[in-house]
Computed example of a mutant assay.
Amino acid sequence: MLAEIGDDRARFADARGLKAFAGSAPITRASGKKTVVTHRHIKNRRLAAVGSIWALASLRGSPGARRHFDARRAAGDWNRQAQRHLFNKFLGQLHHCLQTGQRYNEHQAFPPPLTLAA
Rank of each mutant, 00 (worst) to 15 (best):
M1R: 09
L2E: 11
A3M: 11
A3P: 04
I5M: 05
I5E: 06
G6R: 03
G6W: 02
D7K: 13
R9W: 05
R9G: 01
R11C: 02
F12S: 03
F12D: 02
A13H: 13
D14C: 15
D14K: 08
D14S: 14
R16T: 00
R16I: 00
G17N: 10
L18H: 08
K19C: 14
A20F: 00
G23H: 03
S24F: 15
P26S: 03
T28C: 11
T28G: 00
R29A: 13
R29G: 05
R29Q: 12
A30W: 10
A30E: 15
S31K: 10
S31Y: 12
S31W: 10
G32C: 07
K34E: 12
K34P: 04
V36G: 05
V36C: 07
V37D: 08
T38R: 15
R40G: 09
H41V: 15
I42F: 14
K43I: 06
K43D: 01
N44V: 09
N44H: 13
R45W: 10
R46K: 15
R46W: 12
L47I: 07
A48Q: 10
A49D: 14
A49K: 10
A49T: 09
G51R: 03
G51D: 07
S52A: 09
I53M: 14
I53N: 03
W54P: 00
W54C: 08
W54Y: 10
A55M: 06
S58H: 00
S58A: 11
L59D: 04
L59I: 00
R60V: 09
S62F: 02
S62R: 03
S62Y: 02
P63G: 04
P63H: 06
G64I: 01
A65F: 04
R66D: 05
R66E: 02
R66S: 04
R66T: 02
R66H: 07
R66Y: 07
R67S: 06
R67W: 05
H68W: 12
F69T: 05
F69I: 06
A71E: 12
R72P: 02
R73W: 02
R73C: 06
A74R: 15
A74K: 14
A74H: 10
G76D: 10
D77R: 09
D77C: 15
Q81W: 05
A82R: 01
A82Q: 07
Q83Y: 13
H85N: 09
L86D: 03
F87Y: 13
F87C: 14
F87E: 07
K89P: 01
F90I: 03
F90M: 10
F90S: 01
G92A: 14
L94G: 07
L94K: 04
H95S: 05
H95Y: 15
H96K: 14
C97V: 12
C97S: 13
T100A: 13
T100W: 07
T100H: 11
T100R: 12
Q102K: 09
Q102E: 14
Y104R: 05
Y104S: 06
Y104G: 01
E106I: 09
H107M: 08
H107A: 14
Q108D: 13
A109V: 11
F110S: 04
P111K: 02
P112E: 14
P112G: 07
P112T: 12
P113D: 12
L116T: 14
